[in-house]
Simulated assay, not measured.
Amino acid sequence: MTLATLILALVTLQRLGELVLSRYNTGRLLARGATEIAPDHYPLVVATHAAWLIALWAWGRDQDVNLIVLSIFILLQILRLWVLATLGPRWTTRIIVLPDAPMVTAGPYRYLSHPNYAIVVAEIAVLPLALHLYLLASIFTILNALVLVIRIRAEARALAVVQRHYDDQ
């Protein structure tokens, strides 16, 4: 097994684990009265990330690994864990709004409105770069940016409604 294969296996397992956690958190939030906002674009998010992983497996599993760039990717995983820990049971891969819950402003949310998206943008570029897949990094950075335009607009609308509701109380 190459180092690249090991890295891709770990990233794939991580992403699958996050989907399980997201599904669990989504179910619990919906049971508490939360609603999903703008679900129509979610298959596009999943398809983009799945295609990214498939492309990495197809072209990256036997590549040499740039350890300096890999260390940046590992740092991004630490930041990802910070986001997950900050959101706790409110973290999902969907846009889920829980009525009467204040917006999260702790942890990385003190510094950025969308820290998870910033991390994902970096990950989508950095992991292919660690595997010397420069074209793949470019293609998926552009695809992800297009998906994020849709996603962030939908989330911003949802958060604005939540913030107005919370401010009115």
Results as ranks from 00 to 15, higher is better:
Leu70Ala: 05
Leu135Tyr: 09
Val149His: 15
Pro99Ile: 08
Ala38Met: 11
Arg15Glu: 11
Val147Trp: 04
Ser22Glu: 01
Leu112Tyr: 10
Gly33Lys: 07
Glu36Asp: 12
Asp167Cys: 09
Arg23Leu: 15
Ile119Phe: 00
Leu133Ala: 11
Val121Glu: 15
Trp59Gln: 08
Ile74Gly: 02
Ile78Thr: 06
Ile37His: 13
Ser138Gln: 12
Thr26Ser: 10
Leu148Gly: 10
Leu129Ala: 09
Tyr166Cys: 08
Ile7Asn: 00
Thr93Tyr: 01
Leu67His: 05
Thr48Ile: 06
Thr92Trp: 00
Ala4Thr: 00
Arg23Cys: 10
Gly107Asn: 00
Leu13Met: 06
Asp62Gly: 01
Arg164Asp: 02
Thr12Met: 07
Val46Ala: 12
Leu129Asn: 02
Ala158Lys: 12
Leu136Cys: 11
Pro89Glu: 08
Pro43Asn: 12
Ile150Lys: 07
Ile7Leu: 06
Ala158Pro: 12
Pro115Gln: 15
Leu16Ser: 12
Leu3Gly: 03
Val11Gln: 13
Asp168Lys: 15
Thr141Glu: 11
Gly17Tyr: 03
Tyr109Asn: 02
Leu136Ala: 14
Ile96Cys: 01
Trp82Thr: 05
Val97Pro: 03
Pro108Arg: 01
Val46Gln: 12
Met1Thr: 11
Ser22Gln: 08
Arg80Trp: 08
Arg110Lys: 15
Thr141Met: 13
Val45His: 08
Val161Asn: 01
Ala31Asp: 02
Leu81Ala: 05
Arg110Tyr: 09
Ile72Ala: 05
Tyr111His: 13
Pro43Lys: 03
His165Arg: 13
Leu29Val: 08
Pro115Lys: 06
Leu87Gln: 04
Ala85Ser: 09
Ile7His: 04
Ala122Asn: 06
Arg157Ile: 11
Pro39Ala: 05
Thr141Leu: 12
Val161Ala: 06
Met103Thr: 07
Ala154Gln: 09
Ala34Gly: 07
Ala106Trp: 09
His165Pro: 01
Tyr134Thr: 14
Ile124Pro: 01
Leu56Gly: 02
Arg164Ala: 10
Ala145Asp: 12
Ala85Asp: 08
Pro102Gln: 09
Ile139Phe: 03
Leu3Val: 13
Leu81Gln: 07
Val83Thr: 07
Thr92Gln: 00
Ala38Asp: 04
Leu53Glu: 03
Leu131Ser: 01
Leu129Ser: 02
Ile119Leu: 06
Tyr117Glu: 02
Tyr134Ile: 11
Gly88Pro: 01
Tyr109Arg: 02
Ala158Trp: 04
Thr48Ala: 07
Ile150Gly: 13
Pro102Tyr: 07
Val45Leu: 15
Arg94Phe: 03
Leu136Asp: 03
